[in-house]
Design a protein around this nucleic acid. Structure first.
Length: 778
DNA sequence: GAGCACTGC
């Protein structure tokens, strides 16, 4: 059995020691950059992330392209594909294609470790698609319908939207075809695929939904994914919740399809030919091939899971050397140490290139930036300028795109970032990385009465340290300064704990049950253990989504029709009964799109004042709805962008969240309509029913007031406080329902509404469990 | 009377 090895050696990712579990199929190829994976194009508010290269927009005559125009576009695409082919040939993955293809074709499951820059994500699908036609150059002239009809249909999953979209664009260009035909993508809010799409890039979440929302009842309710011949799970090393569930489900699908193929063949051999002939080609089952791809992972773990019983393939990347240096002794203030380190690099006359600093959170980032700015004030004339840019997700897009803007001459850029720069955003021009060795991660404390969460500062893993290091070697040789000792590094965990072992599983468990799989019997790569699964069962049973650990109810199936957490889906369904889907869809959209308010400590008073302008006495949910309605009004009045920005600034409103909420609202309205529900039904002035609908999903998150003004959970025993950002703070309402509990300086309920306690008798859970809700004692 | 890692359907 293969042995797990450290993913990278000291010199950085470009010199990975070949793991005994991996055989090398291609070496470093020296050529220009071609790596698309995880590339981020400057964008704001989800504006189209990526543009087809080499295609100019054309005027349409009566909305229809002329024959000449179509022909010309085709010619342009072909020329572009030929131009790109020069670079493709240089990719390590292209060079090793024959061996890779043979390996995949002769096995059920293949594991590929493809280092950054090897071209795996763009080349593998094309390679599979052109097989068995030829191993040679895929000529756009060969894309006749009949040939492609015989080619394997490929699905490639990605953890994030942007790479899925960018990869599809890139591969369409390389193949010289229009996006949405032979090559397409499926992500939330956008499906660029057609009936003839042979290569489909998709987010993992889309595939999960496809697996769980099966139309056919074959083999329990598990969707056998018959529209794909090969499923490629890319970036498997990230081990997202969906990666793990998809791997388990795929293994099962593969086995079932193998069995069906054997039965099919047997019945053909039995002279059952007449019947077989009549069968629609769509009903014909083929075997499923699985390919697991990643940058760095523990290949032995995946080999064992998929029982591949052979080496993983290793494709060397195109990274440059990165020298790593550890501090000799532990630093006591990593923020100060990071700032000093940056200045050392800056004043090294030989140092050329930008600096990327990894910090755990926004507070540390802002402190570090302040130290750097102070140091920059002391610069003498003739010193190279320094541009200091913070980078974290909650920054407005206008601040985020600065890292892609051209630099002023004779300036060194220093980007101080969170984990966002580790995977989600690739920053150009970085040659130096300063790594504090910390990250922040959400932690759940499971209780029978729901979860309490908090953000904790944690040590990173060795794999993450190498990932951060690699960020210095994408364009040239670089250096990585680690603000922790070699000894500390050696004590880091080898890999990050997979997400499945540290999050709420309710949503994923419901999807598993819908697939006809038993969550306790499910084959996990890493078992989360019984407790979190049992907790998920309790949540789901309380919501009425399941009637036993393996039985989904009709209500549960209805809940899965919407891209929402079980509790939120339950609220939406309740809203149809209570006659308030219009309001509830808006509220759920807001809850799922980030903070409505911008609340910085510096201008907290004016922020609170602004909130009062929109206050609804029932609480934060309806107050947020007022803001949302105001925002929509402004847009409907065709207010200028500038006017909306001014409004947002004056009222401390986060427009990024509101724009996202509009998209989610559109999707939820659309889905409700498709399932025969009228989303236009409104509660009007009767906002009470809105809160009653909320209670149907959030009944576990309720509390009643006590003599000291704090609240006591109705379903648990914790004492909680209303978060000071709530409009209900110090209002002393008798009973509250909230979205979440967070432990910081106290246990706070966030996003709170007031309700009438008598309404709890409506809730099945309190009846079934025979729990008498706690009473207010004020 | 106060703290905001990061994704995704």
């Amino acid at each position: 059995m293969a042995r797990a090895t450290s993913p990278v050696s000291e010199a950085g990712p470009s010199s990975v020691k070949v793991s005994p579990a991996a055989k090398r199929v291609a070496e470093f190829a020296d050529s220009s950059d071609d790596e698309l994976q995880q590339q981020t194009v400057p964008h704001a508010n989800g504006v189209k992330a990526s543009v087809k290269p080499g295609l100019k927009k054309r005027k349409l005559v009566n909305g229809v392209k002329s024959k000449e125009d179509k022909e010309k576009e085709r010619e342009e695409r072909k020329a572009e594909a030929e131009r790109l082919f020069v670079n493709r040939q240089q990719l390590p993955f292209y060079q090793g294609r024959k061996m890779i293809l043979e390996d995949i074709m002769s096995h059920d499951t293949t594991i590929i470790i493809g280092e950054t820059g090897c071209g795996k994500s763009t080349q593998l699908p094309q390679l599979l698609r052109t097989h068995p036609i030829s191993l040679d150059h895929f000529s756009p002239d060969d894309t006749t319908a009949s040939r492609l009809a015989r080619a394997p249909r490929v699905a490639v999953t990605q953890p994030r939207r942007l790479p899925a979209i960018a990869l599809a664009n890139r591969v369409a260009a390389e193949m010289g075809v229009a996006l949405g035909q032979e090559v397409g993508y499926s992500v939330r809010f956008e499906d660029m695929c057609g009936w003839n799409t042979g290569i489909r890039y998709m987010t993992e979440g889309v595939l999960m939904r496809e697996l769980a929302n099966a139309d056919t009842a074959k083999s329990g309710s598990l969707n056998l994914l018959l529209r794909y011949d090969v499923v490629v799970v890319d970036e498997a090393h990230e081990r997202t919740l969906n990666t793990d569930f998809i791997c388990g489900a795929l293994k099962r699908v593969q086995r079932i399809r193998k069995k069906l193929v054997a039965e099919q063949n047997a019945s053909l051999a039995n002279g059952d030919k007449g019947k077989g002939k009549e069968k629609d080609a769509k009903d014909k089952v083929t075997e499923l091939k699985i390919v697991i791809m990643s940058a760095t992972l523990d290949p032995a773990k995946f080999s064992r899971f998929f029982e591949t019983d052979r080496d993983a393939l290793l494709v060397k990347g195109r990274m440059y050397e990165v020298a790593t240096r550890h501090v000799k002794s532990p630093v006591d203030d990593f923020i100060e140490a990071a700032a000093k380190n940056v200045m050392q690099i800056h004043f090294n006359p030989k140092a050329d290139g930008d600096v990327l600093v990894f910090m755990p959170g926004s507070e540390e980032i802002e402190n570090c930036c302040e130290l750097l700015r102070r140091a920059a004030k002391e610069f003498k004339e003739g010193d190279v300028n320094i541009e200091i840019l913070p980078l974290y997700a909650s920054l407005p897009p206008s601040a985020q795109v600065k890292i892609f803007a051209p630099k002023a001459p004779k300036t060194r850029r220093v980007i101080v970032a969170t984990n966002i720069a580790e995977t989600s955003i690739t920053i150009p021009g970085v040659a130096y990385v300063v790594d504090t060795g910390f990250k922040k991660e959400k932690e759940y404390i499971f209780r029978t009465s729901g979860a309490i969460e908090h953000l904790a500062k944690k040590k990173i893993s060795q794999a993450a340290a190498w990932q951060r290091t690699g960020r210095a070697g994408r364009e040239r040789a670089g250096e990585c300064y680690r603000l922790f000792t070699q000894d500390t590094f050696d004590k880091f965990e080898a890999f990050d704990a997979p997400e499945i072992q540290r999050t709420n599983l309710a949503s994923a468990v419901l999807q598993l049950i819908a697939m006809g799989l038993d969550p306790f019997e499910f084959e996990y790569i890493d078992n989360p253990g019984r407790d979190p699964i049992s907790a998920a069962f309790q949540t789901l049973a309380g919501l009425g989504a399941i009637s036993s650990p393996t039985t989904i109810t009709d209500l549960g199936r209805d809940m899965l029709k919407y891209p929402l957490d079980p509790a939120h889906a339950r609220i939406l369904i309740a809203s149809f009964e209570y006659g308030c889907p219009k309001e509830i869809i808006d509220i759920l959209s807001l809850l799922n799109s980030g903070p409505v308010w911008i609340d910085r400590s510096s201008d907290r008073e004016s922020a609170a004042e602004a909130r009062m302008k929109y206050i609804n006495k029932d609480g934060d949910h309806l107050t947020a709805l007022n803001v949302f309605n105001n925002f929509i009004e402004l847009r409907e009045q065709k207010a200028s962008n500038r006017a909306i920005v001014a409004w947002a600034k004056e009222n401390h409103v986060n427009t990024k969240s509101l724009v996202q909420a509009l998209k989610i609202r559109e999707q939820l309205r659309d889905l409700a309509g498709k399932h025969g529900k009228d989303w236009k039904v409104s509660a009007g002035m009767d906002t009470g029913v809105v809160v009653r609908a909320l209670l149907q999903g959030l009944f576990m998150n309720t509390a009643v007031i006590q003599a000291d003004g704090t609240y006591r959970q109705t379903a648990g025993s914790l004492q909680v406080k209303i978060h000071p950002s709530s409009v209900l703070m110090s209002k002393k309402v008798p009973a509250i329902v909230y979205d979440e509990l967070a432990i910081t300086s106290s246990i706070y309920a966030r996003n709170v509404s007031s309700f009438d306690q008598a309404w709890l008798t409506d809730i099945p859970w309190f009846k079934q469990a025979n729990v008498k809700p706690a009473q207010p004692t004020l």
